[in-house]
Amino acid sequence: MTATLARPTPHTRVLVDTAAVDDVPALRSLYHAVYGDCYPLRLGTDPVAMAAAMTDPTVKWRVARDIATGDVVGSALLRTDVPLRIGKVEGIAVDPGHAGAGIGGALLEALMESAFGAEGGLDSVYATARCVSPAPQRLLLRHGFHPLGVLPGAVTLREVETLALLVRYRDGIPANRRAPGTVPQEVAPLLEAARGHGVHFDDIHAESAPVPPRTGAGTDLDVSHDPGLVLQRYAWTPSGAARTLPLHLPNTLLASPDGRFEAYAVIDAIAGNGLLLEAHSAPDEAPEALGDVLRVMAERGADYIEAMLPLHDRTRIERHLAHGFTPTALYPAMRREDGVWHDYVLLSHTTARVDADALRVDDRFSPYVRQHSHVRPPASPNPSDTTKRG
């Protein structure tokens, strides 16, 4: 797929096409020029991972070349989960010397054609944008993305940073969504923010109910990072269960010694974050087990931890709230099951708080920033480490 872009700037023409393995050295130089030595993604720093991604049919990697010189001056990629019909935009980068020429937009539109065009097959694509400047957010907003929320302390670059979360849908989505009924009061600010952006919720009520705070029971969990074991166990799910989240496979298995509880997670110690994918337990397993999982994940470098839960599953949401999670984003129509779209809520566990004065966000994210101001920071899941995040 190729496209040209002509604009009245000193850099008037670029060619957008598919990245090739021969582009890896130039792409590494590009990401270093944009992010310095703190870029957390392997698909910008690791030559082996980059070459593998370029031959992976689930990854669409586009580059922009200066037609006059042939230099790679922009990059962006789309990771796809075709069975769940969801994609994620990553790695948008434009050479600083070519800023303002519309290159980022050209790359985005090429990826959106891959996602939603005749051969795309996706229903939604999400992306994150840094909050050190509104420019990355506005690039996505100009190209049809909508605000979903603000993720406090979600990534460590030169310092701990907050990210904005956005989504773009295929035309006609979201529609015909499941009414979740009753949700915890803590989710109400997200509902109001989403309504302000035109997302409607029928027959939904936010109710306040006491949720006693919980910590871990102090159980020493068995932890495995062996890829073969983790993925083999993860492939097995209880009868009728479906994989919860797209685009993520676990790299960590955490289990109680007696086998009555196990959880699957992604831990990225370099970026300082983690994602809790699944947790299975015996019916009478103590709810403190979730606290032990958070503690162990923090000990292994995940200071920021996310969980994505169905909005209609009030019991699971309240269990996470009791362990210090905070609702931080809402993803309407994330999954389609039995002909009906299901909304999901993203919860985060972190000791970092949103400092509204330090953030540089587009006004459309202001409701999501404000909704964090009343939230008390949770207790650290690793109390012995109180200086880790400075």
Score class of each variant (00 low, 15 high):
residue 50 M to D: 06
residue 145 F to S: 05
residue 324 G to D: 05
residue 303 D to K: 10
residue 364 R to K: 09
residue 197 H to V: 11
residue 89 V to L: 15
residue 274 G to S: 02
residue 30 L to A: 09
residue 307 A to Y: 00
residue 23 D to S: 01
residue 5 L to Q: 14
residue 230 V to Y: 09
residue 31 Y to L: 14
residue 285 E to P: 04
residue 378 P to G: 01
residue 112 M to D: 09
residue 109 E to H: 13
residue 387 T to Y: 02
residue 329 A to R: 05
residue 1 M to H: 11
residue 344 Y to S: 13
residue 37 D to E: 13
residue 209 A to G: 06
residue 186 E to V: 08
residue 158 R to T: 13
residue 100 G to K: 02
residue 52 A to C: 04
residue 187 V to S: 02
residue 360 R to E: 08
residue 40 P to D: 00
residue 96 P to T: 03
residue 145 F to Q: 06
residue 72 V to K: 06
residue 137 Q to I: 04
residue 158 R to C: 10
residue 71 D to Q: 14
residue 16 V to P: 00
residue 154 A to P: 04
residue 172 G to S: 07
residue 337 E to T: 14
residue 200 H to E: 13
residue 179 A to V: 01
residue 108 L to P: 06
residue 380 S to L: 05
residue 219 T to D: 07
residue 116 F to R: 04
residue 246 P to W: 00
residue 317 I to D: 02
residue 50 M to H: 04
residue 342 H to N: 10
residue 238 P to Q: 04
residue 378 P to Y: 06
residue 131 C to P: 06
residue 1 M to Q: 12
residue 236 W to F: 09
residue 355 D to Y: 09
residue 366 S to G: 07
residue 324 G to P: 12
residue 161 E to I: 10
residue 82 V to A: 14
residue 90 E to L: 13
residue 229 L to D: 12
residue 168 R to L: 03
residue 239 S to P: 01
residue 166 L to M: 15
residue 132 V to C: 12
residue 351 T to A: 14
residue 251 N to G: 11
residue 125 V to H: 10
residue 70 G to S: 07
residue 374 H to R: 09
residue 74 G to S: 07
residue 321 L to C: 08
residue 122 L to Q: 03
residue 364 R to P: 00
residue 119 E to H: 15
residue 312 H to A: 13
residue 77 L to R: 14
residue 245 L to R: 09
residue 177 R to K: 07
residue 40 P to M: 01
residue 103 I to D: 04
residue 166 L to S: 15
residue 356 A to C: 01
residue 156 T to W: 10
residue 351 T to P: 01
residue 210 P to A: 03
residue 379 A to Q: 14
residue 86 I to G: 05
residue 120 G to N: 05
residue 54 M to C: 07
residue 58 T to N: 13
residue 169 Y to R: 09
residue 131 C to E: 02
residue 289 A to N: 11
residue 128 T to R: 04
residue 63 V to F: 06
residue 369 V to P: 00
residue 31 Y to S: 12
residue 99 A to W: 13
residue 110 A to I: 08
residue 179 A to W: 00
residue 313 D to P: 01
residue 130 R to C: 04
residue 59 V to G: 00
residue 26 A to F: 02
residue 296 V to T: 14
residue 36 G to T: 02
residue 257 P to V: 06
residue 264 Y to T: 05
residue 172 G to T: 08
residue 313 D to K: 06
residue 381 P to C: 07
residue 145 F to L: 08
residue 349 H to S: 12
residue 292 D to N: 02
residue 329 A to D: 11
residue 88 K to L: 06
residue 331 Y to W: 15
residue 325 F to D: 09
residue 308 M to N: 11
residue 13 R to Y: 08
residue 286 A to G: 10
residue 201 F to S: 04
residue 324 G to C: 12
residue 299 E to S: 11
residue 295 R to A: 15
residue 204 I to Y: 00
residue 141 L to Y: 13
residue 270 I to L: 14
residue 46 D to L: 10
residue 185 Q to H: 11
residue 389 R to M: 14
residue 206 A to Q: 01
residue 64 A to N: 04
residue 359 L to S: 03
